[in-house]
């Protein structure tokens, strides 16, 4: 049995497999299907300052090897999270990271301050990359100076591990990665969804109520891998990689490209047990290749 544990900015994850925000609810829906304690960590759904109803229906379009969504950060706000959700998830036997979003710098700061008070939440993931909200979200994640500013303001109030989730909808992902590291990010997560759209030709209308939405699933995996690889060479902080991971082989590709951990996202919708199967698959790969510890895979891509 190989050592699967990874250290991410001082936090120990029992294995590199975690679940992506927005695809895992608050974890409780998955207790019907898996033992959450077998995962390295979970990233729970985005929390904003106040209640958000999200976007109108339809919010989803299936596409070739993927799907578009435009949920729009539906959640009941940080008060509700601290009061109703936190007590239910605080004792999960895994690292529970909260995804934090907002429309203004002040809102990000306010939510981060509140989450900072929660003892069993060792880190937050700043969502500056949601393509489905009119204000904030991706706007912060596509302009390096704004990405630095929001990260710095949150860094000033947030004392634990600060992760920042990057948008792929940029010309240079490394510029954005450097910008958030300059702002004080301990970890970068990439990638969020790619902006896309789908059209119903019979009705000659967009499928999504918001016209455009975020593309996820295996369709985006090559883009995500390329970005993880570029960022791995450009910055000196741990990377959490995601984008279309459907099985252990996909996960190992991200580790080789430079990710210290991975998130399983859209695949959770199709197989709610997939994250645990990926843990087992990585273990089997290590045993097969006689590798003692998973950290030996991180950034171990041979390019010569």
């Amino acid at each position: 049995m190989a050592d699967l544990s990874v250290n991410i900015s001082g936090l120990t994850f029992k294995n590199p497999v975690t679940t992506a925000s927005g695809t895992f609810g608050y974890g409780d829906e998955f207790t019907d299907f898996i033992d959450i304690g077998r995962l390295g960590g979970i990233f729970v759904k985005a929390v904003t300052g106040r209640n958000r109803d999200g976007n109108a229906y339809p919010r989803m379009a299936e596409t070739a090897s993927g799907m578009l969504n435009s949920v729009g950060l539906q959640n009941k706000g940080v008060d509700h999270f601290c009061r109703e959700i936190y007590p239910k998830i605080k004792d999960f036997n895994t690292q529970v990271i909260v995804n934090v979003s907002g429309s203004t710098v002040e809102e990000y700061v306010e939510v981060a301050e509140r989450i900072n008070e929660l003892e069993n939440i060792p880190g937050i993931e700043l969502n500056i990359s949601c393509p489905n909200v009119k204000l904030g979200g991706m706007a912060f994640g596509t302009v390096p100076s704004m990405a630095t500013e929001v990260t710095r303001e949150v860094r000033n109030v947030y004392k634990k591990v600060l992760m920042v989730k990057l948008s792929p909808n940029v010309t240079s992902i490394t510029d954005l990665a450097k910008a958030v590291v300059d702002g004080g990010a301990d970890v970068v997560t990439l990638i969020n969804t790619l902006l896309g759209m789908a059209i119903d030709v019979e009705r000659r209308r967009p499928v999504l109520s918001t016209i455009t939405g975020g593309l996820s699933g295996p369709a985006i995996k090559p883009v995500a891998l390329r970005m993880v690889w570029q960022v791995h060479k450009a910055v000196n902080v741990p990377i959490i990689g995601l984008g279309g991971i459907m099985n252990a082989t996909d996960a190992i590709e991200f580790l080789l490209a430079g990710a210290s951990a991975i998130q399983v996202g859209t695949a959770n919708f199709i197989d709610p047990q997939i994250s645990v199967k990926i843990v087992d698959g990585i273990d089997a790969y290590l045993n097969k290749h006689k590798i003692n510890k998973v950290t030996d895979l991180i950034g171990a891509l041979r390019t010569e």
Partner: peptide, 9 residues
């Protein structure tokens, strides 16, 4: 998408 309450679609 999911059918069990997590995707909110």
């Amino acid at each position: 998408a999911c059918g069990f309450g997590v995707c909110l679609c």
